[in-house]
């Protein structure tokens, strides 16, 4: 799981153009959205949805599902591990 978490962090940094950020800057359990965590906003959700589909074959059809899945990198990793098709 640790390897998957690190992989997702690298893909997040790349997809969201977080220039200069390293995986070490992202707390596994910090919220991805809002001022408390990574500071992502609703615009970034689109990038995250594409990231899941492209890299792991996961299609999020229900926006409500996204709210749960994108809570933190750790939650994303759990969801990817359980639902990935590639």
């Amino acid at each position: 799981m640790e390897q998957l978490i690190n992989e997702i962090k690298l893909k997040l940094i790349d997809a969201l153009n977080l220039d200069g950020m390293t995986p070490a800057d992202i707390d596994d359990h910090a919220p991805l959205f809002g001022d408390e965590g990574l500071g992502l906003d609703s615009i970034d959700v689109l990038e995250l949805i594409v990231l899941l589909e492209r890299n792991y074959g996961i299609r999020l059809a229900n926006p409500q599902e996204g709210k749960k899945v994108f809570q933190s990198v750790a939650v994303m990793a759990d969801y990817v591990a359980a639902n990935r098709t590639k």
Binding site: N17, L18, D19, G20, M21, D25, G37, G39, L40, D44
Partner: peptide, 18 residues
Amino acid sequence: DLTALYRATVGDYPKFFK
């Protein structure tokens, strides 16, 4: 190096990286 400057003088505003 803007990232180094950010880390040295701010450091607590992750939105900077976006």
